[in-house]
Amino acid sequence: MDMPLAPLLEFCDVTKQFVDKTAISKLSIQLYPGMVVGLLGQNGAGKSTLMRCALGIIEPSSGEITTLGEPVHQLSSEAKTQIGYVPQQPFGYEGFTVSRALALHSSFYPNWDSELEADWLLRFDLDEDQQVQRMSVGQRQSLALMMAMAYKPKLLILDEPVASLDPIARRKFMSDLFDLAIESGSAVLFSSHITSDLERVASHLALMRKGELVLFKEMDSVREEVKLLTLAEGDSIADEVRVLNKQGNKVLVDNYSAARCPNMQAESLNLEQLFVALHRSETPQ
């Protein structure tokens, strides 16, 4: 990747405290053009809070958030037209037909991509005369995604975007996502529990646990550097290796390399296994 100029989204030591719970804790992250960041974490780990803070929908308790180069609580209207967001439960436009909803929506955005619109209508078999509220959940989700992508936002934030899409629709969506990230130099942040999709689509993985960002790195580096070690008697872990979780003699580590962990049994993990290993708790004695 070329060295990017400025981050499109930057969190600096951000904490969000709700009355009874810390939703995100001292979180720092930077998203640059071209990044497709997959956000993974248990329900309640703070993913949606992070996204809503990035959009300025909720205000952090402490720390700085910069979105498209501007402080998030005073975004200019120009910056706002360059942000796309699809929440878990879209969405307005009830009482509209698809074509009227699209006509109104596109009128807000000068960069509207009519080709993408036509392509998605065709591919997802959306009927332009249908009432939005009569569409299936999956159809509504594809319409919401199309509405967010067709104006080529610089920053696209998607909360569980693909859960209701069928596999073919998901593939189409992913390839359009790449176009957006690479050709338009946008950054995408999306959460999903479908780890196999995340493994394909994400350039980077952001892993949250209980409000903390425990891992943020390139997907292929995750595959190379995050391992499950089985410690033998007398084995000790080098300082450079970061322990993410430990259960008995099984230790989940980041920054693994064979040189740092000589003669240790190290297991490669796919994302689902990694997720499970991260959340496994010490069994009570």
Binding site: E199, R223, N270
Partner: peptide
């Protein structure tokens, strides 16, 4: 195979 745990670029 994105789920093999082996970096995709290396595969």
């Amino acid at each position: 195979n994105p789920s093999s745990g082996e970096p995709i670029y290396r595969q």
